[in-house]
Nucleic acid binder design. Structure first.
Lengths: 222, 222
DNA sequence: AAGTGTGAACAAGTTCACAGCC
DNA sequence: GGCTGTGAACTTGTTCACACTT
């Protein structure tokens, strides 16, 4: 098990984990890298190599025990415990995110909801009071939080990130289009749907052009 | 300009585009690859090489004209036109996504909102009536749609994807944890926050362990 | 003097292919 | 016989370094 595991490998593990959960639900107990690869459209070699960074979990001639592999991935990813999460920004998106049942069921406890709007502060969302973001830094000192989800408006993203990191939060999921600066060692991931759409339109545009090219060529042909 | 441009390059262009928009708003007219790289934490060489796949947009000794580069990226990414989008699934997340002003402002017109819930169908969201998803396929035949955003519950994701692709939609942004199958040539991107959180916990767990290791070592030292 | 554009060198990531084990 | 685990071969992607342009 080498010390340096490529980041792309880490990013794929949760995908394997989710697929294996589904496969376990379907009642299967053993699965080969070939079958896993078919489901995910990746080569079986990639799955075997990815897993081999962490240990030897398979059995030659048989494949992987679904339960065993799930358990190993749980340990590798740190999913054998619960993680404390706060959501900052309880607008429409923040409310939707904070009430998504997938977090709770996968071990992420949303233990706080924060906003700056006096109309929202003190109101109840999913059975929890929305707290004043001005109290966030103090709250973080009293009860530590692992992960912050930021769903405020773009102009406030950086200051929220600063408060979170000062308060010891070590990972931020940023739903804001702002590219925030965080100290070394703080994990940061961005969810920006517009950027996804814009890379897709590159291909849509291209495809349209290709079709025109084809039409052009066809009309030239006898 | 080679025929095969790496997908990672395409994925970075919208990031450059967004940064350049901000820089233009700040009133700057010229920028070097060094300065762009500093902002995005990438090497200037990468930015120059990425752009060089599409043409020679810079001036030696000066850098890039911000306006020129924005315009080139707009053309490359197909942002010189508007794109028709439908949102399927008008629950909390769908409402939040459909009302996000960033789509409209970046050229993505949300021309339809669909749901299967009779309580929602016919109600007004952001000034538009929610339509019955049962009518989606017919609607797509009458007025073509480029992109579908899927915010339904996981079990319905695949059938919605099937309807969209049958109706000629060429790109899908999937907010569902389901890995949907789409025909060759249909663009597909996934937004799954749990998967992001799970790759971050890998690092959080690791960091905690390193800290313990350190504590351990310290206590052994005299 | 400054900064692009780009082959060439290098690094990272993926797939092959097969020895080894079940 | 079937499938893993893994070095080696290959492919893809990144960075270097410098000729060239303004």
């Amino acid at each position: 098990m080498p010390l340096e595991i490529p980041e792309v490998v880490i990013d794929r593990l949760p995908v394997y984990f989710r697929l294996l959960s589904r496969i376990a639900d379907e009642g299967r107990t053993v699965i080969s890298s070939q079958e896993l690869g078919d489901e995910l459209d990746v080569t079986p070699a990639q799955i075997r190599k990815d897993l081999s960074y962490f240990g030897r979990f398979g059995k030659q001639g048989r494949g992987y025990s679904v339960q065993r592999l799930l358990e190993e991935l749980r340990l590798i990813l740190g999913l054998d415990r619960r993680w404390a999460v706060v959501v900052v920004g309880i607008g429409r998106l923040g409310r939707a995110v904070a009430s998504y049942p997938g977090f709770q069921s996968q071990g992420f406890d949303i233990i706080g909801r924060y906003d700056a709007d006096p109309k929202l502060i003190g109101s109840e969302v999913d059975g929890t009071l929305v707290r004043d973001v001005a109290e966030l830094e103090e709250d973080l000192k009293r009860s530590p939080v692992d992960i912050g989800i930021v769903t405020v408006t773009a102009p406030h993203a950086q200051e929220v990130a600063d408060v979170l990191t000062r308060g010891g939060v070590r990972a931020i999921l940023n739903y804001t289009p702002t590219r925030m600066q965080v100290p070394e060692g703080v994990e940061l991931k961005h969810i920006n749907p517009v950027i996804f759409l814009q890379s897709m339109t590159y291909h849509l545009k291209r495809r349209a052009t290709e079709r025109e090219d084809l039409r052009g060529r066809t009309s030239i042909a006898p």
